[in-house]
Structure formats: C-alpha cells, structure tokens
Amino acid sequence: MPMTLGVEEEFLLLDPVTGENSPAAEKVLAGLGDDARAQSRLEVRHSMVEMVTGVCTELAEVREQLTGLRRAAAASATATGATLAAIGATPIADPQRTVTDNPRFQAIGRHYGPIAHDPAVCGCHVHVGVPDRELAVQVCNHLRVWLPVVQALTVNSPLFEGADTGHASWRSIQLERWPSLGPSPLLASGEEYDRTVRTMVASGVMLDESMVLWYARPSAAWPTVEVRVGDICLTVDDTVLVAGLIRALVATAVEQITAGVPAPGVPDYLVRAAHWNAAHAGVGGTLLDPVRGTARPAWELVEELVGAVTPALESHGDLAEVRAGLQRVRTGGTGAERQRRILQRTGDVRAVLTEVSRLTVEG
C-alpha cells in the first residue's frame, strides 16, 4: 500500500514592473475558482499565498494537482496586476511588512516582534502519511542526517535587495532568526516530544504548540510526518522530485525502525552545520556529511541518499521519475543556479523575475 502524500507550496506575489513584493494576497485568493480557493491559504504576509494539494498516492497525481493550482493562482494574480513567483525569498523589497489579519498571525507578530516582519520567504512542505504518532517521532529522528541533502536540492533564493547574496538559499539564512526553527532534536518517544514542546512554550521560545518549526515534525493537524526544510521549488518537476525523495526517506525510516535499526546519534551542531552548508552551496560544491563529519562532493551524497532509499522508490513506482528528476537538476541546475545564470547573462534582476514567473507555471 503506497504511503500518502500531500504538498503545500508558498508563493510570492510580485509587482511586474518593479519586482517588489505586491500586497495582493487577499484579492488573489478571492479571485480563485471555488475548487482552487478550497485548496488555498492566506499566509502570514500580504504578498504570499499558499496552495495545498489534496491527499495523493501517486507522483503523477501530485504533479497534476500542483500544475492546476499554480495555473489557477497565476491567473488570479495576473488579474489583480501582480505576478505569481515560485521563489524562496524576497528578491528586491517588501514594502508592506505587516502581518495579515489572522488572529494567530497577529499574535505571532506581537510575540516575536521584528522577526515576524522580516521580508517574506516561501517554502515547500511535504506531508507523508504515518498513522502512528509514536512512529512519526521516530521517523523524524531518522530523517535528520538526510534532510540537509534534500535542502541542497531545493535551493531557490539567491537574491535579496536586488543582488546575489552569495547563498543559494537566502530564505534558510534569514529564517535562522526564528528561535524554534532548525533540525528536529533526537527524541526518544512521543511523551518526550510533548514534554520538550511544553518546556519550549514555557520559555517563550515557542508561542504555542503550533510553533514547532523543526525541519521534520509530526503534523499537529494530520496523521503525517511534515518535512518543511526546502525553499519553494522553481518548477512543478522540482517539487515532484522532492516529494518522491521525501516519501522514500520516510518509508525507509519506517522499515529501519521496524527492524530495530537506531537513528544515527549525530550531535545537533553537526546537523546544523550541514544545513548551513546546504543553504550556502546547494549542490554546486561540497556538503558536510554529518555522519562522517567530513565535507564530500554534493552529488556523491545525493547518490548515497538515492542508494539508501532505492527499495522504497521501487516499491512506490517512483525510481525512474526520481532518477530523471535528479539528472535534470544535475544538468540544468537548481532554482538558485538557474536564477544566477540569468543574472550573469543579463545583469538585470527583473529579467530573472520574469523568467521565474514563467517557469512557475510553465516549468
């Protein structure tokens, strides 16, 4: 029986002339058809919209839904005078930094102050069905050492304030200001998970239990493990690739847990260093292998990940799709690499954003 999948994608709304963020989210959501509106969410910032697939079992189903939702959101954005952009961080400027009127977002803004008003960033969250919450906590332990590699494949935010930051994922660097964001800690049980969250809420690090912003977590709303490490992917193809890899990682972790294989006991500081490395370099150089504690060629680690999850990819019928997707990224580049090539060729950030908006819908 295939594990279920769901994907949440956050998008920026940009002014097509200036390239600045456009505070048009409410108008864009209101302009969606009934079906697409039911799969949309108002986000924390006025220049962001989120589109959410239903529960899927096949990557082809994920692709179909993502494509339809991107097209619907892009058409509504165009009708409001904005453009929809699958880009991980604010590329030029965010003139309106107030949070939206949702009471929870207002509470977050009051609690965290200027951090909550940083320029908008957009991620991609993948849910994989794991019905047992105790098992979900153990799965998160097993994912820790592999998620930096997944992060490196999703990098899609090199720009900030109209220039190349030198980081492949500026979104990841910017989000380090949030105190409860980062690798999930090694936790022995669901009871320890709950106790840890209660302690962090008591400290104020987390405003409430909904502010568990770890890169992998048991979903508070659904019987899933939610992986939230990546930038919004530039194209639907890239998102499908990441969804397939994450499902295979979760399925492999479940098999290892069932067989009594313990999660690698890697210190948090090494996992954090691997994530910073991934955000900085993507797959364009070396990545830190947190298990060995050494820097290795990025694509060597990617191949090692694929080797570890190949049985799960085969059982879900996803191996050919994932292999083709990885070859496409290896030859064509990550979203960050593609943006940088356009910037180097044109010297014009707005030309980059025009192409980003096109690829958001057309792939």
Results as ranks from 00 to 15, higher is better:
R328L: 13
M200V: 07
L234I: 03
A248C: 09
L66M: 13
A77M: 10
P148Y: 09
V17P: 08
E314A: 15
R177I: 06
V139A: 07
A188M: 02
T294L: 14
A60H: 09
M206L: 13
A89H: 11
A72P: 06
I115M: 15
E303A: 15
R110H: 13
R292K: 12
V250I: 09
G190L: 15
V225P: 02
P297M: 04
S184C: 14
G347D: 11
V329N: 01
E161T: 05
I232S: 13
P23K: 06
A220Q: 11
G113K: 03
G347L: 12
T83E: 13
V356I: 15
V44G: 08
A38W: 04
A163T: 04
G260P: 06
R41C: 07
E255A: 14
K27Y: 10
V266F: 10
A273G: 11
R198N: 08
M206D: 05
I108C: 10
M1R: 15
P262Q: 08
S357L: 06
A279R: 10
D238N: 05
T224C: 09
T196E: 13
C124T: 03
T83V: 15
M211Y: 00
S22Q: 11
M1E: 13
L301H: 07
T334L: 14
G363V: 00
A82T: 12
